[in-house]
Design a protein around this nucleic acid. Structure first.
Lengths: 208, 208, 208, 208
DNA sequence: GATGAATGAGCCTTCATTCAT
DNA sequence: AATGAATGAAGGCTCATTCAT
């Protein structure tokens, strides 16, 4: 068994502090001093572990995206491959579950969204994530719709997810996952042929 | 006698420069020095006209929101009151027309969105805008749907608008208004009773 | 009769505003903009009439000193030359009368005192005033004391005047002229031969 | 491990540089840049140690006042309690000894006097110091004079100290402690009953 | 590995002065 | 004569980063 070094402890510790700080005071006030204090370490350590503030921000975004990817993958692995509607709903659900909907993460993500437009490193991460979501959605929707229709519905679903998520981030109460899933789910159900709803119903019943 | 009427010239001049600068280098690099240079004036002038950088940012957001409100109002005034579907589509269209979809404005708006979460003045402006959009949508949707359904569809449409808009902002090519309107339009049409589509068709034909 | 031009109006107007502003917000916050506003004129006018802020400050100090000199001269001209004690008391009284003891003037004077140590122009004005006070005092005291004693009492009286005045300036209620004159007067009376007190008493009675 | 104990080094270092700078160029030119340079450190350090320029100024005044208080306390502890005149003279002497009479300290003190009128924090410090001086003087004078007389003589002595001190600050040669003590001493001796002079003489002789 | 003292650039703001009107 | 818009330097402060310990 290898000894776990400090990097494995410090990096997540600082990333989580970053999310907390950005969530609470905003990106413009998230200085390394404040983040360091929130993590209970000295400011100098950030340059040591991430090469600088930019490195920390990139690592933080990467962390959030990875978390989402993990959740989605886990969700899909538990979903019946014969139930494409269920799988699409699973993808949607992933976007409104776990750490993703905590106000701090929502705030952080929004800050990154804004920053990504002018920061190549963040922009690339953002693009990868966007494409993955679209490709996941399209892959499942193709089982229920024509390629053309699948593409445009995928875009709509992705937009709906982001929109619900964005509006939730700006609401004092935060994101309401149930409402979000319900609204996105309704849209999808209204778009796919009826028989996929039946399959989905049966699959759910079976899994219980 | 001094030059008069400068405030009426300088304020829009500085606001436009702000949008341009935020659009091009991002909020974090939009210093008063850079904005001043972009407007061709000295940095000190910003405090003179807006009381400080915060005042300029607030005025800028106010300017963008007012622009959107004006476009929406103008659009609605030209739409037949007997055609609620047409009016909803008009509201949607307003959000993807005019200055709103320029990459600079999109970037600026996103920056404000992020900032609004931790800046009370911007937050208030944001909230007013959100509520107005929802209320406009709900008012028209109520003519076609039950109050409950109108409410949830209004939320979905607003989310769809924001989502399309957000994703467009992050795309190199910028927002594609036609695609956006098409996708949002499709969603709305799939949600309202068929007869309102007929009314809408007739209204359009008549107006040509 | 010569026509009175604007300079004769503007200069005192600005000087008085300066005293008012320094008295109310202190030297460090007395900008030309604030002074101009207090005088109801534009900031540019100060450079026009005084060549700059320094010129205004110097003129303001000159104005206050001249006022004190005038009061003293007037007081002495009304005092019996055969009553040296009465004349000394008159000099003391002059320093605690008229505009000199208003809180604004006191504050302004103190500010100049501090500034004079590093501003040659103000320093020169200060010195002239100090020497005049000492010379006035010494001239009268010499009629009652030896030259040596007169010199040291003159210094003490001057210090007592400045000290009372300084302490008064720092008290919320401002300078109390009666208390000040009483204390300084007591000191002087205890220092001069008794017969000058008798002369003084007689002189006062006669003048009534 | 970082360098430790720097606060204990830096704070006095910066305070002394502040006194030096104010003494040499005046309060209005005592910028953090200049003070930092005089202390051989970077300007940013001032905010680090004092929270800002105001904090440094307050700490500087506190330092000077504390120094005076220490000197006075030390002086009194070495003075015979049965010799009230000696104790009063000791208090006076304290005000014209040690660091207090250096031109830099005199200039700084005068600058603070002026500033205190519009700066609550400095004003409070000033008041504490004034009250302490008066109370010390009154306490001793009460052993020699009626309460009423003690009060007014205390005020006069305090004024005389401040006045001598103030005039000295404005003299190129600086304060002359011997002359100052002599003048103030003479005044006090002329005010108290003769027998306290005898006590004082005896006490001095004994202590030699 | 970790600290936090220190730097120095960059930020926002204030201000005395200039100048077209 | 007077305005007040505009400048640009200088002010205080914040901050990411470096480095001796």
């Amino acid at each position: 068994m290898p000894k776990i070094g400090m990097p494995e402890i410090r990096r997540p510790q600082l990333i989580k502090a970053t999310i907390r700080v950005i969530g609470q005071v905003g990106m413009s006030r998230a200085s390394v001093a404040v983040i360091g204090r929130a993590a209970g370490v000295s400011p100098g350590i950030i340059s040591h572990y991430f090469g600088g503030k930019d490195g920390l921000l990139e690592a933080t975004m990467r962390y959030i995206l990875k978390d989402l990817a993990n959740i989605t993958r886990a969700k899909l692995s538990k979903t019946n491959k014969e139930d494409p509607l269920g799988r699409v709903l699973g993808i949607v659900e992933s976007n409104f579950s776990g750490g993703q909907i905590s106000p701090d993460v929502a705030s952080t993500w929004l800050a990154f969204w804004s920053r990504a437009m002018h920061d190549p490193a963040l922009y690339r991460l953002q693009q990868v994530n966007e494409k993955r979501l679209l490709s996941y959605l399209r892959a499942e929707l193709k089982h229920m719709l024509t390629a053309d229709k699948a593409k445009s519905v995928a875009i709509a679903v992705a937009a709906l997810i982001d929109g619900m998520w964005l509006r939730g981030a700006l609401t004092p109460k935060g994101i309401d996952p149930q409402q979000a899933e319900h609204i996105v789910g309704d849209y999808i159900k209204s778009m796919v042929p009826e028989r996929f709803l039946s399959i989905h119903q049966k699959t759910i019943r079976k899994s219980n």
